[in-house]
Computed example of a mutant assay.
Amino acid sequence: MRLVHYEAKGDDELASQTLASTVEFADTVLSRARGLMFRRSVPDDYALVFRFEKPGTRDLHMAFVPFAIDALWLVDDEVVQKKRLRPWVGLGRATADTIVELPAGAADDVEPGDVVHVEE
């Protein structure tokens, strides 16, 4: 499983890039509440994916996360917001049906309007 970024290049051409080859899902109440808290680090090719039934306002916090991350808020795989969250104090909020947390710098080439998709 991998997380792939599709960037429009014009004339309906898409360029793809693998953002993460190690994908973990936060799919229980406990795993969603914990997120990346209490971890010391994550691998460079890692993504934590939160999926929800429908789009809604989704908040992220960095309490007890001692490293920066890139966060992506998606609706139907389209990036609606990207934000770098600082260790311990970072906060983010946007509408999403999926949130992706990546190591800081992993989403540097991702922009709102791009597509990010988990592929089996």
Rank of each mutant, 00 (worst) to 15 (best):
M1Q: 12
R2V: 03
V4D: 02
Y6R: 14
E7W: 05
D12Y: 03
L14S: 03
L14V: 06
A15Q: 13
T18S: 12
F25V: 01
A26E: 00
A26N: 00
A26V: 00
T28G: 08
R34I: 00
G35P: 06
M37F: 00
R39G: 08
R40W: 03
S41F: 02
D44K: 04
Y46N: 02
A47T: 08
L48Y: 13
L48G: 11
R51Y: 00
F52D: 00
E53C: 01
P55T: 01
P55V: 01
G56D: 09
T57R: 15
D59H: 13
D59K: 13
M62A: 08
A63T: 10
V65C: 13
A68C: 00
D70F: 02
L72G: 13
L72Y: 02
L74N: 08
E78S: 11
Q81I: 03
Q81K: 12
K82Q: 06
K82L: 07
K83F: 03
R84M: 06
P87G: 10
P87L: 04
W88V: 05
W88R: 10
A94N: 11
T95F: 01
T95N: 03
A96W: 00
D97Q: 11
D97L: 06
L102R: 08
L102H: 05
A104D: 09
A107D: 05
D108Y: 01
D109H: 11
P112Q: 07
D114L: 10
E119T: 08
E120C: 05
